[in-house]
Design a protein around this nucleic acid. Structure first.
Length: 655
DNA sequence: TTAGGGTTAG
């Protein structure tokens, strides 16, 4: 096929629409006719690659064009520079800056704004300032760029000052509505970070008077600003009220829900996006959806998304592949996560950390350490979270020596100073290993004020090792730090009960009642044939409940034949009056397990997600069930995974 | 053409 030069660009635009999802085909097509392309064609492909998030390719195209000795014009630069800032590639950014100087476009308003943006995103706010100062006639875009630059670099005050200055030089006050809404919104995001309520309201009022119909960016920014303030409903309101939405609008809404743990809402928005059509989701959408699947433990949906990722050729995207690894780990399939991990060519700190954390939450600390060593040997520098994950892995498996070693080494060998989370892991590790005094000394020697997580792990350790004195110390701190969390009251009450101090048990019950605290009901979720079944403690709502209880009865009899005796400690010690009926009632995970076995093919794995931690009795029962019915049972509790198989649990009864 | 969307822990 021969294409004349004049027809080339319209053809390309048509192609663009077809390949909006992934641009590898587009570049292949472009490459075929590359010798016919003029500067505007190149600009067009650079802009398209940059817009579709393929910054690496966009930059490559820019430099290819330069190699061909085509003379770039003023529109060649902004997209190339934008790609540098998307990649945080300062080196290329400086090269592009140099090129812009060579061709005399450095004071072009679009080019200089892009450069300001690039420098401030790369953390060089000073260079951004120099550029800004040198612009002879600044427009609203220049101002916006520097203000957002300040916001991104956490110079919020400066951003607000600039905004006020801008208002002054425009000789308008807060009531004037002629100011560009983009500036208003960028300041709104700045305000949302410092929670400067008055100004937030003021700007919000202006945006509202001005209206943002037809201005997608303003609506999208507002959604983000509201979610940062924790105002999810307002984000949704903006989203619902938008006259038109683009890919970013949908992605923002999905991401906001997914990050807030509202997985169902995130998935609903995603389904809406697919259904309403016209929107081809991209890598950003899928990584947000994968996060929702990870939170919800929705393995089946997660697998479908994984298939989509493969179909769209997005496996090489680091963020997407990291999300896939995380999703498989949190949905109970570490080995599948490992498979995805091994087949990922590009890995960053987060990818490695996700795998370390994944092994950790499944109690496979040795493999977590192995991945960690491999990471170091690949020259990847572990970060703060890597060490939280590593220490967490050690604490789940009771690897005291390794944990202690890395806790002491992380600072001088990798320059990561132990933070409160690392202390939390160590207190957990030492405490559970029985060295309560050493754990207490560690807390007392902390550089920062211990938080409820630290005291909470210590209290948990006191329960295991039945130390009433230290338990009281930590409980006192916890009642100050987190008075509305009833878990701590129950824990302390159980410790008193273990020691036979029934008066104190009663005192705890009264205390909880006076403070109006109610224990949240435990529930378990099991996914079968694409349907999600939820069970509450002593559930009688499920249509099959009669059959489930009958089946559970027969199971328990079988278990008693192999030596099971109910562990009533977790029943007797519960402070809640109603909980005393627990002998008659049944914990949700037992119901879910029974239901799962009844309704699935023999030999298949049963997977359950629980909101609280598994109690000792359920742990014993499920271990035995796994042996009696010859099934693998996987439970994700609020902290970690338990893999029950052949009468044993992966946690080695250490949890 | 400025602004706005995604990954790792607890």
């Amino acid at each position: 096929m021969r294409i004349s030069k004049s027809r080339f660009c319209p053809m390309m635009i048509k192609r663009k629409r077809q390949y909006s999802a992934g641009s590898s085909n587009l570049t292949a097509w472009f490459n075929k006719y590359v010798d016919k392309a003029d500067v505007s064609c190149w600009n067009s492909i650079i802009a398209d690659l940059a817009r579709s998030g393929n910054s690496v390719e966009a930059l490559r195209a820019f430099w290819s064009m330069r190699k061909l000795s085509l003379r770039p014009n003023r529109s060649s630069f902004p997209c190339a520079i934008k790609s540098c800032s998307a990649l945080l590639d300062l080196h290329s950014g400086k090269q592009a800056h140099q090129q812009a100087l060579v061709f005399g476009f450095e004071s072009d308003l679009f080019v200089s704004s892009a450069l300001i943006d690039m420098y401030s995103r790369c953390g060089l706010l000073r260079d951004a300032w120099t550029l800004f100062d040198e612009i002879p006639h600044r427009n609203v875009v220049s101002w916006t760029s520097i203000i957002t630059g300040c916001v991104q670099n956490d110079h919020t005050r400066q951003a607000l000052l600039l905004f006020k200055h801008l208002l002054l030089i425009q000789q308008i006050d807060y009531e004037d509505v002629s100011l560009d809404p983009v500036v208003l919104v960028s300041v709104l995001s700045a305000c949302s970070r410092v929670s400067s309520n008055r100004l937030t309201q003021c700007v919000h009022g202006l945006v509202m008077t001005r209206g943002f119909d037809g201005d997608l960016g303003v609506g999208n920014t507002l959604m983000g600003a509201y979610s940062k303030c924790g105002q999810l409903r307002l984000s949704r309101k903006v989203f619902d009220g938008m006259a038109q939405r683009d890919l970013v609008s949908w992605n923002s809404m999905i991401a906001i829900y997914a990050q807030s743990g509202l997985s169902n809402e995130a998935l609903q928005v995603f389904y809406g996006m697919v259904k309403e059509g016209g929107f081809l989701y991209n890598a950003v959408t899928l990584s947000a959806v994968l996060l929702a699947c990870a939170h919800a433990g929705a393995l089946l949906v997660g697998q479908c998304i994984h298939d989509q990722v493969v179909k769209m050729g997005l496996e090489e995207n680091v963020i997407v592949s990291t999300s896939i690894i995380d999703m498989y780990c949190k949905c109970g399939r570490v080995d599948m996560a490992r498979k995805a991990f091994d087949s990922t060519r590009e890995k960053n700190v987060k990818t490695w950390t996700a795998m370390v954390a994944g092994y950790g939450m499944h109690g496979r600390a040795k493999e977590a350490l192995e991945v960690f060593y491999k990471m170091i040997s690949h020259g990847i520098k572990p970060n703060y979270i890597t060490f939280v994950s590593l220490l967490n892995a050690c604490s789940h498996a009771g690897l005291l020596e390794e944990g202690w070693y890395w806790f002491n080494t992380m600072n001088h060998e990798f320059g990561v100073e132990p933070g409160i989370e690392h202390y939390g892991c160590m207190v957990d590790l030492l405490g559970r290993a029985g060295d309560l005094n050493k754990a207490y000394d560690l807390i007392k020697g902390m550089a920062m004020r211990p938080d409820s997580v630290v005291w909470g792990s210590f209290l948990g350790a006191c329960r295991i090792h039945k130390n009433v004195k230290l338990a009281e110390i930590s409980a006192r701190k916890l009642f100050e730090l987190d008075p509305s969390n009833c878990g701590y009251y129950i824990l302390l009450s159980n410790i008193y009960a273990d020691a036979g101090r029934w008066e104190d048990v009663e005192r705890m019950r009264v205390l909880m009642k006076n403070r109006g605290l109610v224990k949240p009901p435990g529930f378990s979720v099991v996914e079968l044939k694409g349907m999600v079944h939820l069970f509450l403690v002593g559930d009688r709502e499920h249509p099959q409940h009669k059959k489930i209880y009958e089946y559970l009865e027969t199971l328990i009899i079988k278990l008693q034949e192999v030596g099971y005796a109910p562990d009533v400690t977790s029943v007797l010690h519960d402070v809640d009056e109603e909980e005393k009926e627990m002998t008659l009632r049944v914990h949700s995970e037992k119901l879910a397990v029974a239901f799962g076995i009844m309704n699935s093919v023999p030999g298949t794995t049963i997977q359950i997600i629980k909101n609280l931690r598994v109690c000792a009795d359920c742990h014993t029962v499920i271990k035995l069930i796994s042996k009696v019915v010859n099934r693998q049972i996987v439970i994700r509790d609020s902290k970690r995974f338990h893999h029950f198989r052949d009468g044993l649990c992966s946690c080695g009864d250490f949890w």
